[in-house]
Amino acid sequence: MDHRLPPYATTGQRVWFYAFRVICGLIFFFLMAPILVVIPLSFNAQNFFTFTPGMLAFDPDAYSLRHYRDFFTNPDWQQALSNSLKIAPVATLLSVSLGTLAAIGLSQSHVPFKGAIMAVMISPMIVPLIISAAGMYFFYSRVGLQGTYWGVVLAHAALGIPFVIITVTATMVGFDKSLTRAAASLGANPVTTFFRVQMPLILPGVISGGLFAFITSFDEVVVVIFVGSAGQQTLPWQMFTGLREQISPTILAVATILVVVSIALLTVVEVLRRRSERLRGMSPG
């Protein structure tokens, strides 16, 4: 089917053309509705999870910021937020620095056991989280990392690595190697070449890999439940407990804030991806 209905289309084709669009509309609705429902409900003036008559009548009194106030004043939520902000950036830094180096190594032409190495590096993304969490729980207990800040950071860094590897190697694929040789022939040493020539070109990949790693840590709940202790209770963990035990609309306020954060990150990644493709001379798409 083309995106436009040809003038000579039969009635059946017309019906199908519009029916198809309606179906797709419904599926898009299914994708977006849960997220869209959460946002207005988070401004509910009442302690309910459903639309009050006042909200449906757009009565301004039915809306309030009380759940946001609760989020920003409740020490539990603030502690969780600050733990998340202490863990995610450090984990990201670790995965990005190690991951970028390795991605550069992997993009060289003669890498022995490349398949096996790649498989190991992607595995944190493939292995079910509960298995990683269980393994880390036992192993980190043995070495005294369980229940510590560094235990959680190391675990999250490991989980973020596949994303860095994937995005950075993707930007390396289109990398024109003659550029580095040109730099070398003009007298630049390898370090200068790396920072002045290679780095600017793969930077978009590094940054979006970093964002993926960040969001992985920032969203992660299974591993932190097992590897962390109460002192490392992160935002998703707090949400998880809240969902099971004391579900209050504050969770919806947190959810809305996280949706906004996701939109911001998504925009950055998209912009970077286009920039990267433009830099590497590919068509944007």
């Binding site: 409900l41 999870f49 709940v221 998703p236 579900i247 969770i251 919806l252 959810a255 996701s262 998504l266």
Partner: peptide, 19 residues
């Protein structure tokens, strides 16, 4: 519209479904 749910926290989406 596809990427936004993809990027949204798993817990946000799970809480949305609970609601």
């Amino acid at each position: 519209l596809v990427l936004l749910p993809f990027w949204t926290s798993l817990l946000v989406r799970t809480s949305a479904w609970k609601v």
